[in-house]
């Protein structure tokens, strides 16, 4: 089975956010970047589990410049077999998805994993766009996945107020949410072998941007908190009704 995991890079969630002079780009000085948690904890580990049971390979694919190789090496250390990097700055969901799908059209895979969303822009768009371009079924927000044969998966996906269980045949694209797998920490052996695994750099296909960032803003400052005496909850109830008008 040939499995592909798309991995992205995001600022660590605790990062302090600031923007450059014209507010179009994140100020990266002092920010630690990590592999998007959904990609690392759920998509990648699930793919490795499937490969451990059914054989085959787990490739990881990242769209981004060479300075992002450290997250690719981390994915290899966790257990991916090999890696590809499409050599261009990731600008938007449609551009990334176009690069990934064009790659898959040249290099077929049975299952393509993405994370449910990236935690910086929370687009949740890349997986669906990839699936549309290569015309594969797309199962989004999978919280559980069982391969019941080499080409059939039973997948649980999250919906409002519950879950639904779906049966799907390979090939397909799936986006991974919490619950799919348990995070794996790379061990020393993994880190050592990662260095000798293949990381192929692929030139990007030219693409016209469909969306562009106009500017970022910081949210308006919140009014200072109003403290209520813990012995006077009638006052809080009154404020919620008369001032906030929410009850």
């Amino acid at each position: 089975m040939k499995l592909l995991v798309c991995i992205s890079k995001t600022p660590d969630t605790t990062a302090k956010i600031a923007f450059n002079g014209d507010n179009t780009k994140l100020e990266t000085a002092g920010i630690t970047f990590i592999m998007n948690p959904y990609d690392e904890w759920y998509a990648l580990v699930k793919a490795i589990e499937i490969q451990e049971k059914w054989g085959g390979t787990v490739s990881v694919l990242h769209v981004g410049p060479a300075e992002n190789d450290s997250i690719i090496r981390k994915a290899l250390a966790i257990g991916a077999s090999d890696a590809y990097r499409i050599d261009t700055e990731a600008m938007s969901a449609d551009q990334v998805a176009f690069q990934v799908a064009s790659f898959i059209q040249q290099n077929p895979f049975d299952i393509i994993f993405t994370g449910k969303e990236t935690i910086d822009y929370n687009g949740a768009e890349v997986g669906g766009r990839i699936a549309a371009q290569i015309d594969f079924p797309f199962i989004s927000f999978a919280s559980h996945m069982d391969m019941v044969s080499e080409n059939t998966a039973i997948v649980k996906r999250e919906i409002e107020g519950g879950t639904e269980t779906i049966k799907v045949q390979t090939p397909f694209v799936i986006s991974a949410a919490k619950g799919m797998a348990e995070q794996r920490i790379p061990n020393m052996k993994g880190i050592m072998t990662a260095k000798s695994k293949s990381l192929q750099v692929i030139p990007a296909t030219s693409y016209n941007e469909k969306v562009k960032v106009v500017e970022h803003e910081l949210p308006p400052a919140k009014k200072a908190v109003q403290y209520i005496d813990p012995d006077n909850m009638a006052e809080l109830a009154r404020l919620l009704r008369e001032e906030a008008k929410v009850i």
């Binding site: 949740a124 766009r129 409002e160």
Partner: peptide
């Protein structure tokens, strides 16, 4: 921007050659 809406936005935008923004 619901479970199904998030699933669909990429598909529809791709088929309409459209730029898209979610949420």
């Amino acid at each position: 921007h619901s479970s199904n809406g998030k699933s669909l936005i990429g598909n529809i935008a791709y088929h309409l050659a459209a730029g898209s923004v979610s949420a």
